[in-house]
């Protein structure tokens, strides 16, 4: 009865009214949604989108002398130079030598760090560790130390005058062992491994703990050994986490900065362009020519492209292999 009345009352014009009402609701919902997203959006614009736009803009400009003479007229003008900064950066052998160093670094350091992190995570996830809490904290602790501080502490540890162990290693070509050209990438890899293994372990641990216990139980019921549970169930289930951890590591490696910049003060043979991020920083600081925000932005963007390309290649290979 009531149904019919309503239907009657909602005669011909009703559908439109209903749609209006519905639209009104949706608009309200949309506004509420946007309001909730507002703090994030503002933050995202301020600290992400605007800096990127400004970096891209400044990479297209160079500061040129306003006039002639020995001192260029005593002023600089921002001049649009198109892709000149990129051409200069991409044709600079020092830049590619730096990229080569981070690649060499990454190819060796990332697998070691990821495997150790995975091993620690599996250990903490296993029944062998009764109370993983304290261990988790201890392994993660190095990451809680600010990167620059960690780099300084390690540089002191590599200094034969101050270190409890560095003096026992032979100098190579008048350079302290850990700061010698042949060893320094290894010294840096040691620093980053120490800092980030715990962090990557947490990524793996979170993924491991998200594996439903039914799966491992079922495997055990089917007669799988502990080793088989790990290799056939757990490791395949954390593949997504591994992808994330490795991608973050690749990007982080290309952006290596704290370690080379601090070590450079002790190992002056490195120069200001040992690694690409250091090179971009020193271009901005004026200690590498061409200098200024234009060339520095171009180097940074080029570096981001390289990091993006490497990450994309890895992700592609990974998905292809898992098929």
């Amino acid at each position: 009865m009531a149904d019919t009345t309503i239907k009657d009352r909602e005669g011909a014009p009703k559908p439109r009214a209903r749609r209006l009402g519905h639209g009104h609701n949706r608009r309200l919902q949309a506004i509420t949604g946007w309001l909730f997203a507002l703090p994030f959006t503002i933050g995202f614009l301020l600290v992400f989108v605007i800096p990127i736009i400004s970096a891209v803009r400044s990479s297209l400009y160079a500061q040129k002398p306003a006039g002639g003479g020995l001192f260029g007229g005593g002023g600089l003008v921002d001049t649009f130079v198109g892709l000149d900064n990129f051409k200069a950066a991409a044709s600079n052998p020092d830049f590619w030598a730096g990229i080569g160093r981070v690649l060499l670094f990454g190819v060796i350091q990332i697998p070691i760090m990821i495997l150790v992190a995975l091993f620690l995570a599996l250990l903490l996830d296993s029944f062998m560790v009764r109370r993983p809490g304290p261990w988790r904290l201890i392994f993660f602790l190095p990451y809680a130390i600010p990167g620059i501080i960690a780099a300084i502490v390690w540089t002191y540890l590599y200094n034969p005058q101050l270190s409890p162990f560095a003096g026992a290693f032979p100098a190579i070509g008048n350079q302290p062992f850990f700061l010698a050209p042949q060893v320094i990438l290894g010294s840096m890899a040691n620093m980053t491994t120490w800092t980030f293994t715990g962090y990557n372990m947490l990524i793996f641990l979170a993924a491991l703990q998200a594996i439903p216990s039914e799966l491992t139980e079922a495997a055990r019921v089917d007669g799988a050994s502990s080793w088989q549970v790990i290799t056939r169930v757990k490791i395949p289930m954390v593949r997504g986490a591994a992808l994330l951890a490795i991608l973050l590591s690749i990007v982080g490696t290309v952006q290596l900065f704290n370690e080379p910049s601090v070590m450079q003060s002790a190992a002056t043979w490195m120069g200001g362009d040992y690694m690409p991020m250091l090179m971009a920083y020193n271009s901005l600081m004026g200690t590498i020519s061409p200098s200024g925000s234009g060339p520095a932005s171009a180097l940074s963007i080029l570096m981001a492209l390289v990091a993006g390309a490497l990450a994309a290649i890895y992700a592609l290979l990974q998905t292809r292999m898992s098929r």
């Binding site: 043979w269 120069g271 200001g272 200690t287 590498i288």
Partner: peptide, 9 residues
């Protein structure tokens, strides 16, 4: 400023 690091290196 950009000459100094080259010389030091």
């Amino acid at each position: 400023a950009s000459v100094v690091p080259s010389v030091v290196e």
